[in-house]
Design a protein around this nucleic acid. Structure first.
Lengths: 206, 206
DNA sequence: ATATAATGTGACCGTTAGGTCATATGACCA
DNA sequence: TGGTCATATGACCTAACGGTCACATTATAT
């Protein structure tokens, strides 16, 4: 967590620091970013940086919290316990695409976090915004409701679903520009159908 | 590619360099490893390192080639064109688990490569050992044979399959010790069944 | 034995990093 | 007005980095 001197800063300065840090962290891998770059972009002296933050990770973790607070708030609004697993996935998809469109910088940073195993361990370990925990719970509920016919353990299935969503996100991100939100959502829907019914469809029983 | 002075080295020295580099690259993330660490571990002077390799990446790429040459050779032995997609996945699974058991260091390095997007781009871009290309071709053939009932584009499906295998690999790697090869293979088989028939199974048509 | 080319080597270079700290500045209170 | 305290600042520290290069050593050819 940033120190109280940071929160006492005049809004303009605080926002400048946050904004420039968001820009940088979204533009290249975490480990290639130095404190020197951050302070130069924020136009603050190095001494000040260390008055506000313990180190680079302290600042980064703060940004991640900002981002996930936003994401989770958004999801809470549209989700409730009555949905089944596949409905939830469909809703999450729609929200995620919308969120990515509205907050490309946030999305880029979240993406960098999720695709960097070491970083993920360090950052998510503490406050678990949506580590696999969330998905695991969802899957567990689905198992209990009896809608799933697989023998896979919930933890594994949760991981698989998370990684599929990750890969789909990457794909859409790469193609962005060429891919409309509508087309993106269609893509996800097909994937969710695949999860429901498999690649072979249901008429074949071998 | 390493320089010819490297290949002219007495076998003992060359193997010492390779072995120590394999150890280090398997033990921590690529970007945290410095040339200084590599030369210290290999017990060679810094000047020599630069006689043998252009830089760290040169050495790393060479190791990756060694690793994938092994992997591909192994796969070629058991695969032929008559198998369908799911059979191939099952065979690949068995081979991958065997390979991981026999070559844990190789596996750890390959894993680090595959989970580091920037590195992957840099290293795989050149010689494409098993970037998604291999899987994409496999999937394409499967589409043409008519065994798949999904509307997903082949590229997307290939990526999904790759990422699922990646995640399963991670999982097994984490649990290794607690998980026998037999149990691991079972896990994969369930996942492949999931791909074939979906999570809901086939009696339900909604 | 001597000349020539290939290889080995570690001191050395410039650069950058993360982090500190003595001092300067400015706000608030007596 | 003078004193106290939080904050601002950039020069400075040590450590490590990637990379080079003049020189030492060894192998090869004559």
């Amino acid at each position: 967590m940033p120190k109280k001197t940071f929160f006492n800063l005049p809004q303009e300065k605080r926002e400048r620091i946050i904004k420039s840090a968001l820009n940088i962290f979204s533009s290249k891998p975490y480990h290639t970013i130095s404190v020197n770059q951050l302070i130069k972009a924020a136009r603050i002296p190095k001494g000040s940086f260390y008055q506000y933050f313990k180190d680079k990770k302290d600042l980064f973790r703060y940004l991640i919290q900002l981002i996930y607070a936003d994401k989770v708030k958004r999801l809470r609004k549209v989700l409730n316990d009555s949905y089944n697993l596949f409905d939830v996935l469909r809703i999450m998809t729609r929200e995620a695409i919308e969120f990515a469109k509205e907050n490309p910088t946030y999305t880029a940073i979240a993406n960098r976090l999720m695709t960097d195993p070491e970083l993920k361990k360090e950052i998510i370990a503490d406050f678990l915004p949506d580590g696999n925990g969330f998905m695991e719970e969802l899957v567990l509920r689905s198992y209990e409701s009896g809608e799933l016919k697989t023998e896979l353990e919930p933890e594994v299935l949760a991981r698989i679903i998370m990684s599929i969503f990750q890969v789909m996100g990457d794909y859409i991100y790469e193609k962005s520009g060429n891919l409309s939100a509508k087309k993106s959502e269609e893509l996800f829907i097909h994937v969710i159908n695949l999860l429901e019914h498999g690649l072979k469809g249901c008429e074949e029983n071998d």
